[in-house]
């Protein structure tokens, strides 16, 4: 399946034109994307580092991960929306960029991992889960989001 026409269409669409029209538009969207990345970091790292017993050891881990998940959803939403706008501005460039695809694949894995595996499991009382499961899940989660964020940064370097 050739996706290039879809990317070309997106870049020529009113959204693509809007984003490309002024350099400042793209830059502002990019900055909001980064601010949401910090919020995603807050949600992911507070939960994962708690599960690894690195921070907030005396705060119940169930409440840490519950709260973190709420903010995670907000951060992800902002990242997806701003990310889509950024893509629209440089869609054909992204299509030919291996880091864009690396990011999208990891992002897809990350979203499935969070909503299909991680969140349902962490809703249970953590004392009932095996400590190793919790730790491995925290490590997997941090690895996934690190790859998403760093390959995202690298789209700009290799474009």
């Amino acid at each position: 399946m050739n996706l290039l026409p879809a990317f070309e269409w997106l870049e020529a669409s009113p959204i693509g034109v809007f984003v490309k029209d002024k350099a400042a538009t793209f830059a502002i969207i990019e900055a909001v994307h980064l601010i949401a990345l910090a919020l995603l970091g807050a949600a992911v790292l507070s939960a994962d580092l708690r599960l690894l017993n690195v921070v907030m050891r005396d705060v119940p881990s169930n409440s840490v991960t519950d709260q973190a998940h709420r903010w995670f959803k907000l951060a992800l939403l902002v990242l997806l929306v701003t990310g889509f706008f950024m893509l629209a501005g440089v869609a054909t460039k992204c299509y030919h960029n291996p880091f864009y695809w690396a990011k999208m694949i990891t992002l897809g894995i990350g979203i499935v991992f969070v909503f299909a595996i991680r969140a349902p499991l962490l809703r249970k009382p953590h004392a009932e889960l095996r400590p190793l499961t919790l730790r491995l899940m925290a490590l997997a989660s941090m690895t996934i989001w690190f790859i998403v964020a760093s390959s995202g940064r690298w789209i700009g370097f290799s474009g």
């Binding site: 990345l37 919020l39 995603l40 992911v44 989001w145």
Partner: peptide, 8 residues
């Protein structure tokens, strides 16, 4: 990426 830790 360290934004995720410091500002996080």
């Amino acid at each position: 990426i360290t934004l995720m830790i410091s500002l996080g």
